[in-house]
Simulated assay, not measured.
Amino acid sequence: MFGDIMGMMGKLKETQQKIEETKKRLDTVLIDEQSNDGLLKATLTANRKVKSITIDDSLLEDKEQLEDYLILVMNKAIEKATNVNEAELAAVAKDGMPNIPGMDMFK
């Protein structure tokens, strides 16, 4: 039984390391989003850090329109990045979970 516990602890530690490696890798995964007309573009990492925003000059003339564009595009980009982030981390966590009776909620 003690060996089983040590094996589970080792597996959990290995899984934690894989999760940390995945988080670092997600800093290099880029998510691009743009407005329907292409006047505003944003790039985020899968860890939801903004890398770039490109604004067409025509949007600079209307502050309210620019704000609306920013809200819409950034929300869509954040949602996509969150989906990628959660899927990647869940896959690593699920793969690395030891078989503990009663803890099958991750499978």
Score class of each variant (00 low, 15 high):
7 G>L: 02
21 E>I: 06
86 E>W: 00
70 L>F: 10
88 E>P: 01
79 E>M: 11
100 I>E: 02
4 D>P: 00
11 K>Q: 15
87 A>P: 04
105 M>G: 05
83 N>T: 13
29 V>S: 02
32 D>T: 08
20 E>H: 02
103 M>W: 09
73 V>E: 13
89 L>F: 10
24 K>N: 12
1 M>D: 15
105 M>T: 02
67 E>C: 07
91 A>Y: 09
103 M>S: 07
94 K>A: 15
88 E>C: 13
40 L>D: 12
81 A>K: 06
9 M>N: 07
38 G>E: 09
49 K>A: 06
88 E>W: 07
95 D>G: 10
60 L>D: 03
83 N>F: 09
30 L>A: 00
93 A>L: 14
85 N>Y: 05
76 K>G: 00
48 R>M: 15
18 K>H: 05
90 A>L: 09
57 D>L: 00
92 V>L: 03
78 I>C: 10
81 A>R: 03
29 V>H: 08
40 L>P: 07
19 I>P: 01
5 I>E: 11
43 T>S: 12
30 L>V: 08
99 N>H: 11
54 T>D: 12
85 N>A: 11
62 D>E: 08
49 K>R: 09
25 R>C: 04
20 E>S: 14
26 L>R: 02
96 G>V: 01
84 V>A: 11
36 N>C: 03
89 L>E: 12
38 G>L: 04
8 M>H: 05
107 K>Y: 04
46 A>D: 04
14 E>A: 11
44 L>P: 01
78 I>R: 15
11 K>A: 11
49 K>V: 13
54 T>E: 14
90 A>W: 06
49 K>E: 14
63 K>E: 15
26 L>E: 10
23 K>T: 10
8 M>N: 08
66 L>S: 13
103 M>I: 02
40 L>F: 15
33 E>V: 05
41 K>E: 12
30 L>C: 00
66 L>V: 08
79 E>D: 14
96 G>M: 05
29 V>R: 03
65 Q>Y: 04
7 G>Y: 00
100 I>G: 00
61 E>G: 11
8 M>A: 09
93 A>E: 08
92 V>Y: 04
9 M>A: 12
73 V>P: 02
48 R>N: 13
85 N>H: 13
2 F>K: 00
107 K>T: 08
35 S>I: 01
97 M>V: 00
81 A>W: 04
73 V>R: 02
88 E>Q: 13
90 A>G: 12
42 A>Y: 04
74 M>F: 15
92 V>S: 02
84 V>G: 05
70 L>C: 11
64 E>G: 00
59 L>E: 02
104 D>W: 03
68 D>C: 01
14 E>K: 13
50 V>M: 14
15 T>A: 12
91 A>P: 01
39 L>F: 05
2 F>D: 10
44 L>A: 00
90 A>Y: 12
